[in-house]
Nucleic acid binder design. Structure first.
Lengths: 242, 242
DNA sequence: CGATGGATTGACAATATTCAAAGACAGTGG
DNA sequence: CCACTGTCTTTGAATATTGTCAATCCATCG
């Protein structure tokens, strides 16, 4: 049995027993390929499956009736998407692929089994959702209490951090399959204004963004501008059951 | 053993067995009184206790180094606070009382026991955290994609909904122990602008706010302005273990 | 009793959005 | 293969929204 990036993702939270890992493997049976820009879960409709992302990127989004939209999260290899959605009778947000992607659907019943028989895994799932909450909080602060440049700088810093984590190395350049209008929907800004802010960051020699590729010119400066802290995500797993 | 509002809160998510309920009672041993405006958990410091709120109100907040601040949540009787905080080595946000309050501290170890021996309760805790996430998402959309009046109208609608839920009745008037500057920190706006918006809502005969008391003049109109939906919080508990 | 912090309002300044216009580019259907 | 369509990119100018500053009043708290 190969160690997938999904399993490695879980292992980042805590050490797992062989039987825990064997159970996790059941989440990735039945991979399925989706083309880019496919809606996987539709806002407002019931969702009865969750998905492990094996390859590719997805966006979690919230659409308002008047067309305004907010991107809530970008997800990629190893992430579970749909956790929030299946907890409600109707999905409170939609999910779509950003690139061609391989997703592994699995039923809610696996969660039942996990809570009943794998308490340590259930705890890890809980920790993971606390982490997700922490990122959402960062998003709330970003939108509520930072201006446009700071927001953009902070968002790019977050993306950089995730890219490092995924690659296990530090590279000054990284891809995110996103367009400027989409970036604007992440940041709660208009597309036009994001162009201006990108320009400003380029002129101040902090970051460049060209067609899905970010190039960091001055990471320290960027983080200072964004007031970015990377120390805050140290999870405490000491309380997990054995 | 009296049924506290904390236990009733849990029972809203799913039917519980007698032994589940007996276990929950252990969370409320050791009540402790705090005066208004006491910091219960400090941002950046380790927190090793969680708290059940027995009486009073608390605010969950995020302070930036430059003094800007964002209120993330308002909590009251029956809520657990500190769940996110104890999951990290250092608290990612602070918690303070807004009124005189009675809180019951309990150690993380109770969570360990819950996950190990009360899988159904663990599942309910998980559902509760999904609900909290859903509210955070609403907050993100509010900040990212709604203008000042809409934000305020939406926030007031949320508060009204919670007040109804707590009181189990519908009243056009309800208290929230909050000042305008604090309201501003909830909404990501300046205090001055909140005054303007409150005035606007009063002139359009939708809501009034005087010294901690909201009076709804036209709830339908307010919700329409806010694009408020109350149908989205129907949790699905069918997957919980027995 | 003075000091502090909230409430309130207006004028002015900064910030972000909308509108407009034009080129590039990818996908579609003929 | 090509014209057509829509979306993305880019920029400037006009407009709207929101924040800052300043001043006054008021209540509360030592």
């Amino acid at each position: 049995m190969a160690t997938t990036c999904f399993i490695r993702n879980f292992q980042r939270y805590a050490e797992l027993s062989a039987s825990d890992i064997a159970f996790l493997a059941r989440f990735e049976e039945g991979p399925h390929t989706y083309p880019a820009n496919t809606e996987v879960i539709s806002q407002g409709l019931p969702a009865d499956h969750l998905y492990v992302i094996s390859q590719g990127w997805c966006a979690v989004k919230y659409d308002q009736a008047d067309g305004r939209r907010q991107i809530l999260d970008l997800c990629h290899g190893g992430d579970i998407v749909g956790m929030r959605e299946v907890s409600f009778k109707r999905s409170i947000n939609g999910i779509q692929t950003l690139t061609d992607a391989v997703l592994c659907p699995f039923p809610k019943a696996l969660l039942t089994e996990m809570f009943a028989s794998y308490p340590r895994l259930a705890g890890v799932l809980f920790l993971a959702s606390m982490r997700r909450e922490a990122l959402l909080i960062e998003r709330v602060v970003n939108l509520g209490r930072r201006n446009a440049v700071e927001r953009l700088a902070h968002f790019v810093s977050e993306l950089k951090q995730r890219s490092d984590q995924l690659a296990d190395t530090e590279v000054a350049t990284f891809d995110v399959p996103i367009s400027v209008p989409l970036l604007a929907d992440c940041l709660g800004l208009s597309g036009m204004h994001v162009y201006r802010m990108l320009n400003q960051l380029k002129r101040s020699k902090l970051v460049r963004f060209d067609d899905g590729l970010f190039t960091l010119l001055d990471e320290i400066g960027l983080r200072r501008l964004a007031r970015f802290r990377d120390d805050y995500l140290l999870l405490d797993n000491s309380w997990l059951p054995a």
